[in-house]
Amino acid sequence: MDKWEEHFKGVLNLENETQAFPAINTTPDGNIIQVTPEEVRATVNQSKVKRAPGPDGIHTEHLKETQEMLLPFWTNLFNVCLRSGTIPEKWRRSSVNILYKGKGQTNDPNSYRCIALENNILKIFMKILTKKLQDSECPEGVVHEDSFKDIYAKFFPHGNSSLYAHYVFKAFDVNSNGAISFRDLLVTLSTLLRGSIYEKLRWTFKLYDINGDGCITRSELGEIVVAIHELMGRRAHQVEDDRKAREQVDRVFKKLDLNQDGVITIEEFIESCLKDEVITKSLQVLDSGTGL
């Protein structure tokens, strides 16, 4: 039983302490963002039926049959969520089903996968927001590096985000073709926001492994640290700042390179990070927007 408990602690999301996201009121060009009844109706009508509901027990069929009566209510609720930067507490919950993969020993927890069933009304809201995001930031269905850097610059206006955004873009660019499809963008963001600690650590390792050879060198770690310092507004090529950056790189690299062979493997990276309480907690609440 202990084996099962330990396994699912790693693959299931832990309680997220973050209570709200930044309130969204306008687009970059100043237009007011709001959900319209037409958007809600279209999204409800396009939703698939005969799917298991989330914890609230509301099926898609219920939403379709009652939409004319409840359409104004849902529209107003979605807009309140946008203006306030929060969602109803019950929407944060999901029902988790554990399914056998169809192969492997039935007494081995690795032979099972988890499916989280979310409330359907939350799915409607997220589909509407996703379409708005795609229409405004990704109208062609792909994001190129220059556009990606522009988006990053909006979140870090007081620093130079270009270098760090370059490395993040490379980690997002799963096909290494200089473009991120909107789908790949959402999949990666979903992993970072809602994936297990192991999934987040694997992605972070990919970010630090700049040349993609399966290990992190001291030089690669140093490049990411410099990019993070610039992102946070610290000046490059300043003697004192450069000294502190080198000391940070030496300290972190020594901690992660468990066998002291001069490179950090993904196994060493995950093991070291899981032993660090600060890193583990930051991953649980996604307080890692600027890297580890």
Rank of each mutant, 00 (worst) to 15 (best):
P22N: 14
E38D: 03
A52W: 11
N31Y: 01
P22G: 00
Q19Y: 00
V49E: 15
V11C: 12
N45L: 00
L14N: 10
V49M: 14
T26N: 01
Q46N: 07
V35W: 10
K64Y: 02
P53M: 01
H62M: 09
N25T: 09
P55R: 14
E15S: 11
Q34I: 00
N25Q: 13
E38S: 08
A42E: 07
P37Q: 02
I33G: 14
E17M: 03
K48V: 13
T18I: 15
F21A: 10
N45R: 15
T43P: 05
E17L: 04
I24P: 08
E38N: 03
T27F: 12
Q19I: 03
N16Q: 11
I58M: 09
G54E: 15
D29H: 04
N25Y: 05
L12K: 01
T43F: 12
G57N: 15
H59M: 01
K48Q: 13
E38A: 03
S47H: 02
Q34D: 02
A20Q: 01
A23G: 01
P22M: 08
G54S: 00
P55D: 06
Q19L: 12
P53S: 07
A20V: 12
R41Y: 03
N16A: 00
I58F: 09
P55Y: 00
E15N: 11
N31S: 12
E65N: 08
E39M: 11
Q34C: 11
V40N: 10
I24F: 07
A52K: 10
T18E: 08
L14V: 07
I32E: 14
H59R: 14
R51I: 14
N13T: 06
S47C: 15
L14P: 10
R41S: 01
H62E: 00
H59C: 13
I32Q: 14
P37D: 07
T26I: 07
Q19C: 04
A23Q: 08
H59F: 13
K48M: 13
H59P: 06
Q46F: 05
G30V: 02
N16K: 14
I58A: 08
P37C: 10
A42K: 11
F21T: 03
T26F: 09
V40Y: 04
Q19F: 10
I32A: 07
T26C: 08
V35D: 09
V49W: 09
S47K: 01
V40F: 06
R51L: 15
R51H: 04
N31Q: 11
H59N: 04
T60H: 06
S47E: 13
L12F: 07
T27M: 14
V11E: 03
K64A: 09
T60E: 03
V40P: 00
P55M: 03
D29G: 05
H62L: 05
V49H: 05
P28E: 10
K64R: 14
E15Y: 08
L14A: 07
T36L: 03
G54M: 05
E17H: 12
P22A: 13
I58T: 14
E38F: 02
